[in-house]
């Protein structure tokens, strides 16, 4: 579903965030990316929908090459790729439903979206997405009135409203407490399984990565240093990915062990 071939990214400041990464993700796979902060996890994810353009190499989604400079094509591609953010990225001053309807921006006539005159079908899809994450009763509530976990579920609903083939999640649990983190991860996992959506998820915590990922990809300083099934990723593997011994901060629940 997603293919990286010798992908590299160098930021204008000269920082090389990705070095020659080649990777292939299959349909409906749940892949977790781990690595220290600054290892290139966010860059890898944003390369898939062209929010960060590759400096060399290619990335393909299905059989379409991601070209961040072809505005029209990249928007069409982004419509197929849902994205979930660390900080939820909801517009807090508007309703939950309006936030979810942002997922329909590309599929609906521009004049309709500008006037807010979404079709019945769009609203139905948005409502179904909210039902999927079990928060539909908040549809007309302002997003600012929701808790962090609720906001993240709305963020997931927004991605689902796109009817995506791929969902990218950039540290979706970073601003949540441990129980809520598990709830959100469980939602993502079941969406991946039920709807056969390919998931590419960044996680800073080893225990969450092992508990929910089918496959784990390790990045260190922009380089791919591990790629294998989650159950094979033991403490030694993580130590290798991190390039240092593990600490209590690397797991979500401190008392839990790997």
């Amino acid at each position: 579903m997603i293919t990286f071939e010798n992908a590299s990214v160098t930021y204008p400041g000269g920082v090389q965030a990705l070095r020659d990464v080649s990777l292939e993700l299959g349909d409906g796979e749940f892949v977790v990316i781990v690595g220290l902060s600054g290892a290139g996890k966010s860059t890898l994810i944003r390369a898939v929908n062209g929010l960060v353009p590759l400096t060399s190499g290619t990335c393909r989604v299905g059989d379409q090459v991601v070209d961040a400079h072809d505005k029209k094509a990249i928007r069409a591609l982004r419509a197929e790729v849902g994205m979930i953010f660390q900080t939820h990225n909801l517009v807090k001053r508007t309703t939950v439903l309006n936030n979810v309807l942002m997922g329909r921006l590309h599929r609906t006539a521009t004049w309709r979206t500008l006037l807010g005159a979404y079709t019945k079908g769009d609203v139905e899809l948005a409502m179904q997405a909210l039902e999927r994450v079990e928060i539909v009763e908040k549809a007309y509530v302002r997003a600012s009135n929701l808790s962090g976990g609720q906001q993240q579920r709305v963020g997931i609903a927004r991605a689902l409203a796109q009817e995506p083939k791929v969902v990218l999640a950039d540290e979706p649990t970073a601003s949540l407490d441990p129980p809520t983190s598990h709830l959100v991860m469980r939602d993502l996992k079941s969406i991946c399984r039920d709807l056969n959506i390919t998931m590419l998820v960044n996680l800073p915590f080893l225990d969450l990565a092992r508990a929910y990922g089918d496959r784990i990809v390790g990045l260190r300083a922009g380089e791919l240093v591990y790629d294998g099934p989650a159950e094979e990723a033991d403490e030694n593997v993580f130590r290798d990915i991190y390039g240092r011994s593990l600490t209590a901060d690397d797991v979500l629940e401190k008392e839990g062990s790997l």
Binding site: A79, N89, L90, M102, G103, L168
Partner: peptide, 11 residues
């Protein structure tokens, strides 16, 4: 953030 989210949805 919300602007990036709208861009990521193809807006």
């Amino acid at each position: 953030g919300p602007v990036e989210a709208a861009a990521a949805a193809g807006g």
